[in-house]
Design a protein around this nucleic acid. Sequence first.
DNA 1: ATGGGCACCTGGCTGC
DNA 2: TGCAGCCAGGTGCCCA
Length: 271
Amino acid sequence: MPELPEVETTRRGLAPALEGRTIRAVRVRERRLRWPLPAGFEAELTGRTVRAVRRRAKYLLVDLGDRTLILHLGMSGSLRLLPAATPPLAHDHVDLVLDSGACLRFNDPRRFGTLQLARGDPAQHPLLRALAPEPLGRGFDAAYLYACTRGRRVAIKQLLMNARDVVGVGNIYASEALFHAALRPRRAAGRLTRADCARLVTAVRRVLAAAIRSGGTTLRDYVNADGMPGYFRHKLYVYERAGAPCRVCAAPIRHAQQGQRSTYWCATCQR
DNA sequence: ATGGGCACCTGGCTGC
DNA sequence: TGCAGCCAGGTGCCCA
């Protein structure tokens, strides 16, 4: 499901309702997530107060002072704010009940998502330690991407989706950014020129920023903290548009498998 | 070191 | 109508 824009949209919805609130209770209905929730998970959260809700890559970080709750939504996860008494539906695995009477409810049909409790600096947590710079921050620029692609034989799309190289970009936005940068997904990363890298950095940043402004992309499951879908789907140029006319040149959008994932591109606009 | 493939899950859709 | 097969916003881990 969620790539950076969906996680950021969720973060923006959650932050005002969570910050300053104390967790009164934790209700766990299903411990078997990507990594099983440890015994004592509930007790370690209960009574702590939320200082801030941040994001790193596709992870949400709930700052609880001397602990940080690290959440990942996997492919099908979502977080919603609901009245604490709302009856749970299928796949509503975890609730954080707040002192406001609201609850933060984690739903995830496929259970690829995760909740982890970190002590100390969350940036040093094993899941976060080796992540590439934030794509919307200063560390992600043409010089960075050029350096990181040198000597690499992987296809540029796969490099874009590798969190050690670029974070926040998944299958939708990798295809979209490559379209806007006029680069074919299978181009070997090491064969990009400096100019290619500059266009690609701009495309990644613009696509992510525009998707955030639309509240993210909803294909199937994704909803924001208020239960609303994202509307960026209407602004996709290639993703899930196989056979449809390119919005720029009208040539049919191509589709193929690349590294066990679907890839979409325009063979005319992208080289 | 790099890169490819698999595994982890459920649900929705397609086609026989 | 039923069911098998395939596909889906991710990513850690194992192997060559």
